[in-house]
Simulated scan of single mutants.
Amino acid sequence: MNHWWRAYNEAVNDPKLQLLSDALFRAWFNVMCIASANGGELPALKDVAFTLRIPPAKAAQVLAQLNVAGLLDKTETSFVPHNWNGRQYKTDAVDPTAASRSKRYRDKKRDASRSQGVTPDVTEKRPETDTEQIAVAVDARERRPLIGPEALALAEQLLTLSGHSPAFWPPAWCGAPMRVQTWLSQGWQPEIIISSVKSVMAKRQGKQVASVQFFENAIAEEHARQAAPLPQVEIREAQTKTVQSHGKPKSAVIQAIDDLNQRIADFDDRGGSDELRGPAGEASPRLLSHG
């Protein structure tokens, strides 16, 4: 049985789609067709690979990239297109009760009009179902992308720094762009994030990291350190002690030298006497000769 799925004209302005490469955009369209044929959920990887006519490894890479772009949501067993139930709501073609409900509604409106003498409008449009009204509300919320281009690029850079290849995103890294978008929304700076990750990886000596959350503590600590106030520096002038000699200021060292020279001069003035001057009021000591 052939199925069809809805495509909305707002897709032409959706960054999540328009930033895809041509090859990945074509793969997304085919993945949507596969999901439509399987009730909204993708089948096993080997079946997806067969339908896309590519190897399973390449199919896994495609699904990971679409998941990172926010176009596929991961379930416990597989992937589903983002907001599939909201956009691909049930219609009369798949809801066997819709036709009978619509007929009862039209009959009720016709009977009410006849009782009031009003000719019913046989071309009256059936009312929108609850799912259709919900879908309109969901569409309004979906117009703003959850993950910006900067977060996508930064997440891929962190993946590379962590020792992984951008050609294949490990399952634990599929939510990295959303986490990085949260960091950026909280004011974390890309430069500090990158430098912190490089510092952590240098200590790990190239050992791979399982998920981007591994770096959060180091990034938070570096942001806190960068935001800390700078230390206050106080410069004090050096103190110089001076003494007064003959009306001129001299330093303590020069004054000591002058005092010593004066004492030697006083000793010479006594004609080479072998006596030393003692304190006032005491006998002067006498020098003894070696002869």
Rank of each mutant, 00 (worst) to 15 (best):
A155K: 04
V200F: 12
T182A: 15
Q208L: 09
A202F: 12
H164F: 03
I147T: 14
S162M: 07
R204M: 13
Q186C: 14
K207I: 13
M178H: 13
Q205Y: 09
V197S: 05
A202T: 09
A176G: 04
E191D: 14
T182F: 14
S196R: 07
L159C: 06
L152S: 02
P190N: 08
V180P: 06
G163N: 03
K198C: 09
S199R: 15
Q181C: 10
L161K: 00
G206D: 05
L152C: 01
L152T: 03
S165A: 11
V197D: 03
Q157A: 08
W188E: 10
W169G: 01
S162A: 15
G163Q: 00
W183E: 06
K198E: 13
Q186L: 15
L159P: 02
L152F: 05
M201A: 03
L159H: 03
S199D: 13
Q208C: 12
E191G: 12
R204L: 15
L152D: 00
K203D: 08
S195V: 09
S195K: 11
A153H: 06
K207D: 11
E150G: 05
S165L: 07
T160H: 04
A153P: 00
L161I: 06
I193K: 01
A155F: 01
E150W: 00
A202S: 10
L154S: 10
Q205H: 13
F168H: 09
Q208M: 10
R179E: 10
W173E: 04
E191I: 14
P171L: 11
L154T: 04
L152W: 02
Q181S: 08
Q189N: 12
P190L: 08
T182Y: 13
Q157L: 08
A155S: 10
P170L: 04
L161C: 05
C174W: 13
P171Y: 09
L158H: 01
E156S: 07
A172K: 15
G148R: 12
W169P: 03
E156F: 07
G163D: 00
P149S: 12
